[in-house]
Design a protein around this nucleic acid. Structure first.
Lengths: 355, 355
DNA sequence: CTGAAAGCGCTAACAA
DNA sequence: TTGTTAGCGCTTTCAG
């Protein structure tokens, strides 16, 4: 028993000597190769040729680095350079498949370029989002991608002033000059509404979310208002706004009231997938049938819509491309701080199903 | 023109003096208050009392820090302390709602405790996962939470040897002593199978995923084998294994073949939600009806199952609690490196619907 | 071609 | 009760 115990202790002590416990630094390499730390750093950062260091020396350094299994300390590097090779991503809710799938893409492209991703959910709370931005900024991420829930873009403007690379997606700010990737929400909404209209629907209800300053939501709602205004046969806009909290708690009472108190409605347009789910619930509960009694089209396609019976028509955003472009835009800014901001508008796809 | 140019230059120079451009450091505070950097550091880290620094001095330091809007540089701190206040999370695929929802919880609890989260998807690829573990380790995250797709736990053992806090979830390793939070997959599977059996199903097909070393999948499959073996009325196990890639590509051919070539099957158990979706597709395609011709129960409840008609019965894991416990376990290890490993098994919930 | 030296901002022994 | 000093590991002038 004692022997065993001693053995353990000795092993532990011994480990100090030979194990890769104590991490190797450029100083170790320098000492072993017999050159200065500077040279090692230069070589390892592929600045050897630029500083005309002999190929022979370079090779020795590289070999020794591999032999010692040298791993650079990112903290030391970050402290020195101010860069972290980390990107920050803020979405409303990572468990929402819309954001989940975009996140997946962003993660993938970032990883390909050697960047890691810090993921945060703002919960549609501007205060929380501000805190997260601050946190990411404090942590010196090299850039931030955000589907912002802010109503006042000044916090983001501050980032830009600080030259922090920034890309918005899904939501932009009117009259603000940020890089952005998204879709034409007005046009997509108009197309869906037109379809409903062509199918003979005269009373189309529109259900959307607050906070209503969110550009994507606003554009969709405005497109609806415009659509209704342009057609004399529509009396009043049939509009319902839910807030994020009641939606999250699956409190659909107001949807129910809305549908019941507007019996003329023959079609519904919802401005996101969760709202559509709420509507489906309510419609079933009331005992109505889709699409016999009421038609439904939703923004943001999710798998569910495809499998429902009847399947639900929806407007699909090109999630993969949104993620890809967001990263591309951000990396461009990171690589060249003077890059002009760019706005990328991608095409949506109106998927017509049975609803 | 020239005047303007000069103005810019002057502004730039001036900015050095008063703008919050150049970040304030403890040195600035020290100088202003007239104490040493050490003292400032001590006070700001709430070690003032412990080092019997006068309350008066402490207050001065705190006030000045606030006045100067001091923000500690996490890189410098990390370099010095070796801690980053960052947690690493590795899942198979962040866009899968199962992981998305757990991630959401983990993020939230981590954030509450002042930790940020680095999220990575392994894509069920062990090589990729190893790389991610290495990356997180290099970045000196304070701890790692992982739903591991590895078949050889030695890479994880290495983390443990290095004293890196580690918590597994969803998947454990037989005979390995890691902290873990998950559910009793055997029991849950048995319960579902029993239900099917009680309802009179004699030929229950079981569809699962490879790689088959993944513990959760293995336990489910073994539970099925055992169940079949224990009942003489079952002739042969009706088992199909898909691989992750064909599932991801929605290549359901083998499911189709399986169902067609086993016409006796009256019930199906799938070991995850994506497989269930595949089955639903195939069953519809073949022209069979759920549950008239074939019943279906799936592991891992998703919203879709609730809304499908018929709605699909499933085994729900307590996602929120899994996330919460995983973080709790990890933080315990971070706070006290000598913490014993702990395995937490949570209850599942068999949700019986129409399928 | 190479190296010395000066920090990035912070913390923690060790003095005083 | 406070301060000095010595780095953490790396990059980058600048001077040979």
């Amino acid at each position: 028993m004692n022997v065993k115990f001693n053995l353990l202790i000795n092993l532990k002590r011994f480990s100090f000597v030979f194990m890769p416990n104590k991490k190797v630094t450029i100083a170790d390499i320098a000492k072993e190769v017999g050159v200065s730390k500077t040279l090692v750093s230069l070589v390892l950062n592929h600045k050897g040729d630029a500083n005309s260091i002999s190929r022979d020396t370079q090779k020795k350094v590289f070999d020794k680095a591999r032999e010692l299994n040298y791993i650079p300390n990112p903290m030391a590097r970050s402290l020195r350079t101010g860069t972290t090779h980390t990107l920050g991503l803020i979405v409303a809710d990572i468990s929402n498949p819309f954001y989940g799938r975009i996140t997946r893409q962003i993660e993938q492209y970032a990883d390909n370029e050697g960047y890691s991703l810090m993921v945060c959910s703002s919960d549609e709370d501007p205060v929380r989002e501000s805190r997260l931005i601050q946190m990411l900024n404090d942590r010196q991420v090299d850039g931030i991608i955000v589907a912002s829930t802010l109503d006042d873009p000044s916090r983001l403007q501050k980032l830009k002033d600080q030259q922090i690379p920034l890309v918005l997606f899904d939501r932009y700010f009117d009259g603000q000059d940020f890089s952005y990737v998204g879709v034409d929400n007005s046009e997509a909404t108009r197309k869906a509404l037109s379809l409903l209209h062509r199918k003979g629907h005269k009373d189309i209800g529109f259900i959307t979310l607050t906070p209503s300053h969110i550009s994507s939501l606003k554009d969709r709602r405005n497109a609806y208002s415009k659509f209704v205004r342009e057609r004399s046969e529509y009396s009043n806009p049939l509009l319902l706004e839910l807030n994020y909290k009641e939606l999250k708690e699956k409190n659909y009472n107001r949807i129910k009231d809305f549908i019941i108190s507007n019996p003329d409605i023959t079609a519904l347009f919802t401005s996101n997938n969760s709202l559509a789910i709420g509507c489906i619930n309510v419609i079933r509960e009331i005992g109505l049938q889709i699409p016999k009694d009421i038609s439904l089209i939703s923004f943001d396609d999710i798998e569910l819509f495809h499998y429902l019976s009847p399947s639900i028509s929806s407007i699909a955003q090109p999630l993969e491309e949104i993620g890809e472009q967001a990263v591309a835009l951000l990396l461009e800014q990171i690589k060249n701080k003077n890059t002009e901001t760019k706005q990328i508008i991608l095409d949506t796809n109106l998927i017509i199903r049975e609803s």
